[in-house]
Design a protein around this nucleic acid. Sequence first.
DNA 1: TGTCTTCTGTTCGCCAGGTCACATAGACAT
DNA 2: ATGTCTATGTGACCTGGCGAACAGAAGACA
Lengths: 254, 254
Amino acid sequence: MLHKPQPNQNHILAALTPEVQKRLYPHLELVPMPLRAVLYDCGQPMHHVYFPTNAIVSMQYLLENGASTAISVVGNEGLLGVSLYMGGGELTSSRSLVQSAGHAYRLPKRKVREEFDRHGELLLLMLRYTQALLTQVSQTAICNRNHQIDKQLCRWLLLSMDRLEDNRLTMTQEFIANMLGVRREGVTEAALNLQRLGVLSYRRGIIEVLDRPKLEELSCECYEVVRKQTDLLLDHKPQRQVIKKPENIATAML
Amino acid sequence: MLHKPQPNQNHILAALTPEVQKRLYPHLELVPMPLRAVLYDCGQPMHHVYFPTNAIVSMQYLLENGASTAISVVGNEGLLGVSLYMGGGELTSSRSLVQSAGHAYRLPKRKVREEFDRHGELLLLMLRYTQALLTQVSQTAICNRNHQIDKQLCRWLLLSMDRLEDNRLTMTQEFIANMLGVRREGVTEAALNLQRLGVLSYRRGIIEVLDRPKLEELSCECYEVVRKQTDLLLDHKPQRQVIKKPENIATAML
DNA sequence: TGTCTTCTGTTCGCCAGGTCACATAGACAT
DNA sequence: ATGTCTATGTGACCTGGCGAACAGAAGACA
């Protein structure tokens, strides 16, 4: 990171008109997001909405027996703290965990509510994003039921890649296993296959994607569904109806 | 059904002030919801938001191979057609299928947007419900990953029961299997166990719940989590902060 | 009454992914 | 070099749920 992160790296903030930016930016606070930091934990009060610039955050649900599964991945296309403006009070029932270090800008809940009451651009963007989030969570639900570990690993890697500048991810197999809610050995096996196919190189927590098209091919359909839907919803045009959908945002980001 | 269904049977409509009701009710259209009717299908345009009075609707996601899984259950506590006000355009990526016959009132999208722009009570209620829906879908995702068929069957029956007046459900095992995204035989086996334990009686598509406390006990935690969160969010009080949570809404409904 | 259809019960083999236990191999500090 | 982590690779074994195929039972209907 050579330069200080800018709010505009976050797509939602960037989509605001200069006028609204001028009003909001003075209230944004830049916060570092170190690996494995916990933004919100279950049952804890939330005080800010976070807009990641280059960090990636996972939302996890936990079970009584301690098992956990990630239900969504959030990067610079989105935000965290949905229930602060949806009216769900300030308690969250999920845990938000930094999965790839970076920064985020955050806005205190008071300001978020002011914007909500103003009923302006930011609210529309936030709601649109929430809709995309709902799609991602739904697709994760059906993916969990129907697809095998190796496909899901591909989905996960792709979702993460799309939210990074380079093609290098820093996460151990153990960590991925926790995110997917599967055994670590299962990830090991799937990752080995991907290495044999020349798609990845994996060494002690550092994954390098060598053949992205192949990775997409090996992934389950869920990745594509989520990406297309997200692109469609977050192609921040002035009004509700979006006609064309951009095909290659994901690859263009590399 | 002896009397004509009333809008107030739907909790969201009922929570509106008389003033707003007066404005909206003339535009509500009562529609019958026969078993297995499809309200929206994937990729189809949506024209109304539906407020069920006594019908139960399932939202399903489909896969390329034809498999499907229900990601949520909606009854008189909620509404269908979220993306009409969240700004996702008019296309839905899920299918909404009537799971228990009844009626619903529906509001044309034009009116929904008027209400949205008005930024009034209805919007707040709709957003609050959307938050509850997100919780339900998230919990379903983790449930799909971690819990066994028999527990999930209990969860499903309870979620459905809470949205009905009596303790009798009309659905075949085949149908339930489709909803849960599992084999029919798996449901047969789980249902047999429940019958042996005296929790259910099951005869050709008609399920009678005989011992509800036991059913709750045998269910996975997911039911409780969703119910509590839903009660909390939809306990339609004037403002955002809700302190106490009502414990027995579900059973009181019987 | 008998026939047809739909729903439920049962069985058997198979496999992905779970648990458990342990072996190796980078990374790093002393 | 040596020891100590931590991350990855491997194996043996078990189980829940899948696929397929079929038998019986309850309604529907002529």
